[in-house]
Simulated assay, not measured.
Amino acid sequence: MRISTLLLNHTSPSLSSLDIPTGRLKMDLLLPRRQKEKVLIVMGATGAGKSKLSIDLATRFPAEVINSDKMQMFEGLDITTNKITEAEQCGILHHMLGILSPNAEFTAANFCEVASLAVESTLSRGQLPIIVGGSNSYIEALIDDKDFIFRKRYDCCFLWVDVSMPVLHSFVSDRVDRMVQNGMVEEVRNIFDPKADYSKGIRKAIGVPEFHQYFKEEPFLDEENREKALKKAIQEIKDNTCELACRQLKKIHRLRTVKGWNIHRIDATEVFRKRGKAADEAWEKRVVVPSTTLVAEFLYNFVSMEVPSSVADIRDYIAQCLVA
């Protein structure tokens, strides 16, 4: 379901295409001329649902996604770095996924340069850039550059998908177990090097250094001790992922309270307490509807007198605005 009925029937863009597909309405046809272009930034701790929300929004607005997760910029280790799959991308054009060789050096300054080009490229096709990822230091470097060029050029809307830490930690633990089931151990084993430098490139990713000792000892262990060593490595991955989530949360709080960023908090905790259809319904109500409302306000200067109860309500209102 989309914000405008004008957008309901379209051809999804090819991942390799650089052109607007036939039938996909450009942003400049929807929006009045303005001095600043608009950019959406989706933030949150690892596992909170940032990628899922970016897809939900990009299938409701004409948009493309720009990755800002450090590790997902490297080629390889798709399971370990939790890259969004092609199927999960739902035909939405994604930028800066798997663009770097595994041992490449890539700084915040490099990110700012490449991300700025991706933003310009996206806007040139009449699409809304959605920057999404957990590397808040990269996002901060981009938004608050030395001369505040980015802010002078673009209007920014910040969405923060927040989940209570105890609830998120439980989810992250389960997610690591699913990653192991999906082949993470073998994936990391394929790049194992006993002399590897874990301070650069994709080997910095959580899930790689934790397996180092296990892979070194594995050939010399009996089955029982091998199982214990594996469980220890997996627990370290869970602990380090939870610590990462806490650091990410602290950075978002600092950007919000110290630097004064106007970051809209979307509480997704209830979603993570549910399962199956109930979780899907909670995601729609608690995350998608308020996020879509905020983005509609940001893009179309739409202010609702009543809190919408569904995306359909927002869609109908915006459709009326566009034909008014």
Rank of each mutant, 00 (worst) to 15 (best):
I3P: 00
T5D: 13
L7E: 01
L15D: 13
T22P: 05
G23W: 08
R24S: 05
K26C: 06
K26S: 10
L31V: 08
P32V: 10
P32L: 14
K38C: 08
K38T: 07
I41F: 07
I41G: 00
M43L: 15
G44T: 05
T46I: 09
A48P: 03
L57N: 00
A58G: 02
T59Q: 13
S68A: 15
Q72H: 12
L77G: 03
T80F: 00
T80C: 06
T80I: 03
T81G: 02
T81S: 09
L93M: 08
C112W: 02
E113S: 14
A118D: 01
L123D: 03
G126F: 00
P129W: 01
I131F: 04
V132N: 01
S135E: 04
S137G: 11
E140L: 12
L142S: 06
I143C: 10
D147Q: 11
D147S: 12
C156Q: 05
S164G: 07
D174Y: 06
R178G: 05
M179C: 09
Q181H: 15
N182S: 15
G183P: 08
V188S: 02
P194M: 08
K200W: 06
K200E: 09
G201I: 04
G201E: 04
I202C: 03
I206G: 00
P209S: 07
F211T: 02
Y214D: 01
Y214C: 02
K216R: 13
E223M: 10
R226C: 12
A229S: 15
I234M: 10
E236H: 12
K238P: 01
T241A: 14
E243M: 13
A245P: 03
C246T: 13
Q248H: 08
H253D: 15
L255D: 04
G260F: 08
H264S: 08
H264N: 11
V271R: 01
V271Y: 01
G276R: 02
K277M: 12
D280H: 10
D280R: 13
E281Q: 13
K285T: 12
V288E: 03
P290G: 04
T293H: 07
V295Y: 00
V295C: 04
S304E: 09
V307H: 06
S310Y: 06
Y317Q: 10
I318G: 02
A319Y: 09
A319Q: 12
Q320H: 14
C321F: 05
C321D: 04
C321G: 03
